[in-house]
């Protein structure tokens, strides 16, 4: 077998997932995911509600422990390469009353590179401003984050991810609650990033647009249904498989596992 951390062209593989099973309270929600993502792509993750899209991303980020299998980021464990990933969470996850303004939030993206005991410098501020400019939020730099609309909040988080200057981006539904103009602005930005050689994984809910937005698609429903270039994967059969209800046995067995676990944990 060839070196698993390199792909054919000898580049490092941004994200490799091997036989990953993830369980909440011992009930499996993702079964045996095997993935190898080629670099420099804009990839959409698609699946029905509760199919484990957020879980997949959180597991990659080390926020949810996996019950078996492993994840490698650029050939190393998450801990070692944490600074090379940028993460945009699903929106509700922060306290909007928090006393920080827009620029502060974007600056946080730089903290990972600073290390202990160092404070952000002029350069970092400059980068943060540029990122804000890219998402057209520069005029709002001094606003408290609570005073932004939903779409604006989403853009701030995007700017923060940009400020991380990562090589791999994981975005959980960046388009939810965003108007059409912003959506197309964001997607343009994502394409720009891709052209710079970054890899982007984006959870997306809208099927019609998914076809146009992404180079590759990852169809997920408790298990990996399919992963490949959009034109190959985006067909009726596979979508039917993804959305056409769950594999009943799989979810039943998941419940059985949980029942047994409840008996002992």
């Amino acid at each position: 077998m060839m070196d698993s951390s390199k792909n054919d062209s000898g580049e490092e593989c941004p994200l490799e997932i091997h036989d990953l099973t993830v369980a909440y309270h011992k009930k499996p929600v993702l079964w045996g995911i095997d993935l190898k993502i080629p670099s420099g792509n804009l990839i959409g993750i698609i699946g029905p509600n509760g199919s484990g899209k957020s879980t997949l991303i959180k597991t990659v980020m080390g926020m949810v422990p996996s019950s078996s299998g492993w994840v490698k980021i650029f050939g190393k464990s998450f801990r070692k390469n944490a600074c090379r990933i940028g993460y945009v969470p699903q929106r509700e996850s922060v306290d909007w009353d928090f006393p920080v303004n827009v620029l502060d939030v974007v600056l946080m993206g730089r903290y990972g590179r600073l290390g202990l005991l160092r404070r952000p410098k002029r350069d970092d501020r400059e980068v943060a401003m540029q990122c804000l400019d890219k998402v057209k939020m520069l005029p709002f730099a001094d606003r408290q984050i609570a005073n932004l609309s939903g779409g604006q909040q989403q853009r701030v988080f995007l700017a923060r991810a940009l400020a991380q200057e990562s090589d791999l981006y994981l975005m959980d539904e960046p388009f939810s609650g965003v108007d059409a103009a912003t959506e197309s602005a964001i997607i343009e930005l994502l394409h720009e990033l891709k052209d710079q050689g970054k890899t982007l994984l984006v959870v997306h809910h809208d099927l019609p647009t998914a076809k146009n937005y992404f180079d590759m698609l990852l169809l997920l429903n408790m298990r990996l249904v399919a992963f490949g270039p959009t034109e190959e994967v985006f067909n009726y059969d596979l979508l039917q498989k993804t959305y056409g209800g769950r594999l009943t046995i799989l979810s039943e067995v998941a419940d059985e596992v949980r029942r047994h676990a409840e008996a002992d944990s």
């Binding site: 926020m63 993460y87 969470p89 922060v94 939030v105 946080m108 993206g109 903290y111 202990l116 923060r160």
Partner: peptide, 21 residues
């Protein structure tokens, strides 16, 4: 000394994980 760490872990634990804090 730890302003940065305190701020990020209070504001967004998810981000702090991704920043390695």
């Amino acid at each position: 000394l730890f302003y940065k760490e305190l701020l990020v872990t209070s504001f967004d634990p998810g981000l702090s994980v991704s920043l390695g804090i």
